[in-house]
Design a protein around this nucleic acid. Structure first.
Length: 412
RNA sequence: GCAGGUGUCGCCAAGUGGUUAAGGCCCUGGGUUGUGGCUCCAGUACCGCGGGUUCGAUUCCCGUCAUCUGCCCCA
């Protein structure tokens, strides 16, 4: 077989140091979520196809062209999860979390799968870290969830972030608004771009996000969603904005902000980066409120809020500089008959939490020194003429010990 | 699904329609040193794949695949 040139399209291998960055971000996220009392949930990577169809909506792009769907051996239709929320909602109900202390605050981290054209910051298998909160309908939980995300990015030293928020209202008013907007787009059908002509049917609100300047100019006169929000939605939105302002959190009220999934109501938000390396894939975190999804899944009427971030995207702009190293490299100048002593010392030091490597292949001392250097060893221990020499490779200082006990005593 | 760019060793990268396809890095083995990081020697490519043009193609053409970028859409 020929050497394989690439992993499957849209997938990447994560090697050190990127794999270290990945874990670093996950650990940081865990710490931040747990600081706010969130609990981790690990749901299956695949679910019954129906779960995602019901959550994302029959008409959504995710369902129509992006799912990895397959039949198992008994003919069940299963799908690799394209997003995290549906599975978590399912788990919330199947595990009876609706009978636990509320609100239920969950977080997760894991792979998602979408069959789409890969680009910068866009993969067919990608990782998301997210939170889902059930049974709290107010703005406080939204504020907390959003600030947790901001806190995470802040700790990752990611600058130039923009928080965009909007309210898409409740389902009734959104429906009315969509119709009004659709009429507006129909009216100007000959002036707008072909994409927007399509969008006027499929998702009129999305048209407002069009990148074409002429279209943008026209849409300044388009009906505004905030004029169609009912008092409750408007009040909700104002409360959230007030909280953000009270804490000096910068935000943009982006009235054309909509999410790709049908289930959102009232608050939706995105966190975008100005970092050019991600080009148009500059949304690194997005989410919103989805008060009807639990009920749609057969549960009680339960308000919910959540978001997800794209781990690969975050990694690309986070500039985490981690390097794998070892504490001691054991150099054997005495030959293979001495190997028991080497292994014993390695085990003792590893039990003391030191990172230890040594040569397995009877290499010459010279090669062992090179190996120590390549593995970023901070110190070496040389077994020579019945003694142990400890050398610090950073400052060249060295000490001689009679045996390993004496050496260990001086290390700790 | 649509549009454009690219495809020479693990990585980077010269090059030509015609004898053995540069070089650098990395890797492996060895010499020197001998508590290394210098240096020296050696080794590793059927030029993405298939077809065509041609006396002859890695170099020209077509197709295909892969990859990158943009659109749609999205984290």
């Amino acid at each position: 077989m020929q050497r394989p040139q690439n992993p499957p399209r849209g997938t990447i291998d994560l090697l050190s140091p990127e794999s270290l960055s990945c874990r670093y971000i996950e650990n940081l996220a865990q710490r931040i979520f747990e600081s706010a009392g969130f609990q981790e949930v690990k749901t299956p990577i695949f679910e019954a196809t129906e779960i995602f169809v019901r959550a994302a909506g029959e008409a959504s792009d995710i369902v129509n062209k992006e799912m990895y769907t397959f039949e198992d051996r008994s003919g069940r239709s299963l799908t690799l999860r394209p997003e995290g929320t549906a599975g978590v909602v399912r788990a919330y109900l199947t595990n009876g979390l609706d009978r636990k202390t509320k609100p239920v605050k969950l977080w997760y981290s894991g792979e998602m799968f979408r069959y789409e054209r890969s680009q910068v910051g866009r993969y067919r298998q990608f990782r998301q870290i997210g939170v889902e909160i059930f049974a709290s309908g107010g703005v406080l939980i939204e504020f907390e969830a959003i600030t947790l995300a901001l806190k995470l990015f802040q700790e990752l030293k990611i600058k130039d972030l923009v928080l965009e928020i909007n309210s898409v209202g409740d389902f009734e008013s959104r429906k009315i608004y969509q119709e009004v907007l659709r009429s507006f787009l129909k009216e100007h059908e000959n002036k707008i771009c072909p994409d927007c002509q399509k969008r006027s049917e499929s998702n009129p609100i999305r048209a407002l996000d069009c990148k074409i300047p002429e279209d943008q100019e026209l849409y300044k006169q388009a009906p505004k969603i905030k004029d169609y929000l009912n008092n409750e939605s408007l009040e909700h939105h104002k409360q959230l904005i007030k909280l953000l302002e009270d804490f000096n959190i910068n935000y943009i009220w982006n009235e054309s902000l909509v999410r790709g999934l049908d289930y959102y109501n009232n608050t939706v938000f995105e966190i975008k980066t100005n970092n050019k390396t991600l080009a148009n894939q500059n949304t690194i975190c997005a989410g919103g409120r989805y008060d009807s999804l639990v009920k749609d899944f057969g549960g009680d009427n339960t308000p919910a809020f959540g978001w997800a971030l794209g781990l690969e995207r975050v990694m690309q702009i986070a500039e985490i500089n981690l390097k794998q190293n070892i504490d001691f490299f054991l150099i054997n100048e005495l030959g293979q008959e001495n190997i028991i002593e080497i292994i014993s010392l390695a085990n003792k030091l590893r039990n003391l939490k030191f990172k230890i490597c040594f040569d397995y292949d009877n290499k010459s001392p010279n090669k062992q020194f090179e190996l120590a250097k390549k593995l970023n060893a901070e110190k070496i221990i040389i077994f020579k003429e019945g003694k142990l020499i400890l050398k610090d490779l950073l400052n060249e200082k060295q000490f001689v010990f009679e045996n390993s006990e004496e050496l260990i005593k001086n290390i700790i």
